[in-house]
Design a protein around this nucleic acid. Structure first.
Lengths: 254, 254
DNA sequence: TAGTGGTCTAGACCACCTA
DNA sequence: AGGTGGTCTAGACCACTAC
């Protein structure tokens, strides 16, 4: 095993077995260089592996620190659940103001030609446009996730969806009032490393993967009316949902 | 912007815009060293960033190659769905043999003291034991995911669950026949970089995050009877599920 | 302003696989 | 056998920020 991996392994062991609890300062590069009698680059390579795994964070010039991770719950299902409504406050804001954290979101609305994955899911023809509501959500000033909702222009036009404000009753309610009630949603979750743009928008540290959560909403007759692209930093979320056995289901499992 | 990031950015752009399609060979380190007039380590740092992002793979000594990624569908919901049963074949095997891929799994059964997260979810006291069925699933010879199912020893004892074989009708059916019908499941999905053990067990390349999918199954009266820990490599899966609007739900959305 | 990590250079030797 | 990436050394200068 290469020297740098041995060094990394010793530090990793300390982190996982609790002898280096979150917040602990790691030895400096100079310390490691001397302790293991290696070149500085070798010590750096060891630490950089830990940084890439998301275990350690560099806080220049104070040194490297063991990272503290405490994910939040993220429930795709809340969409179909009753919720306490505060006037002028949407789901995200309402949910988290209860837990004592300071929620905030930026909203930006634009009319755009949709990206290909959105286009396909909304079954749009070439040249058809969409309305996109781009939101970045913050909790206690830290970016929490991004949420880009796409609607066919024909459905969203001249509705509250076009206004860059919170929609307290939710965009789906707006669509429902126009005759498009969403009764089914398809969720897809991809797990990958972030793009540089996502890294910037969400202020991600190195070694932080993201969940890319795509929701497609359908009406009763199977028409897609809404696609949401969520980007959830892995170190800040647990995705949770619940499944109930339907009366028609057999009693089986993998 | 540091030189190595500029180099990485140019290569990344080529990969994402399609001018460097999957399978393409990247310039060698020597090429980059000369083209950008930098030291070899600088070129290496650029490429290593791409490797860490999972975009590129090193195939020594042939060079670096643009990675090909084609995820498979993973549906937690299949558990509550009717499925075509082939005798002696469990869900995983039955599902994928249809698609022309070669499924295979290794099964290992053990009686263990459960890890703390399992213990908590099964509400076990100290010293209580569990039966764990550890499976590694392969498709066309490549590891696909791991699936460790934990059952309270008292429930699984003296049942087929203890035998290291496929259970064609599913472990849940076995439990149901003993009077423990699972009617509800709680899913939690964590996104993170793999541990070294997971890296080894799933033969993960660098820069491959995993989804850690925990399922807790409950009976009608809320007793937890089963915890499943799935580890899904991000480059090999899409997690997909569907949500239906219940009659009692309001017509709302985030 | 001292000390930290961030970047970069210029060399060296090695293991491994493909041709 | 030759070329590839993998590892490592020994230096250098810089930017940032806590003190």
């Amino acid at each position: 095993m290469p020297v740098w991996q041995q060094i990394a392994e010793e530090l990793r062991a300390g982190i996982t077995d609790g002898s280096l609890p979150p917040g602990t300062r790691l030895p400096t590069e100079a310390d490691l260089t001397e302790r293991y009698q290696v070149a500085r680059n070798t010590a750096r390579q060891a630490i950089s592996a830990l940084v890439n795994e998301g275990l350690v964070i560099a806080a220049r010039p104070r040194g490297y620190f063991v990272r503290d991770r405490r994910p939040l719950e993220y429930r795709p299902q809340q969409e179909f659940r009753p919720r306490p409504l505060s006037p002028e406050m949407d789901v995200f804001l309402a949910e988290h103001s209860a837990t004592g954290r300071e929620p905030m979101q930026t909203i930006e609305v634009a009319i755009v030609e949709p990206p290909t994955d959105v286009k396909r899911r909304l079954r749009l023809a070439d040249g058809e446009f969409t309305v996109v509501r781009r939101r970045v959500r913050y909790l206690d000033g830290e970016p929490y996730n991004t949420n880009d909702s796409y609607f066919p222009l024909s459905l969203a036009q001249d509705s509250e969806i076009m206004r860059p404000d919170d929609i307290a009753r939710g965009a789906n309610q707006v669509l429902a009032e126009k005759g498009f009630l969403q009764v089914r949603a398809l969720d897809e979750i991809y797990v990958r490393m972030p793009t540089p743009i996502e890294t910037q928008r969400l202020q991600l540290g190195p070694g932080t993967p993201v969940a890319y959560h795509v929701v497609t909403g359908f009406t009763e007759d199977g028409r897609p009316i809404r696609v949401v692209l969520n980007v959830l930093p892995g170190d800040r979320h647990v995705i949770a949902f619940e499944r109930l056995r339907l009366p028609s289901d057999p009693a089986e499992a993998p």
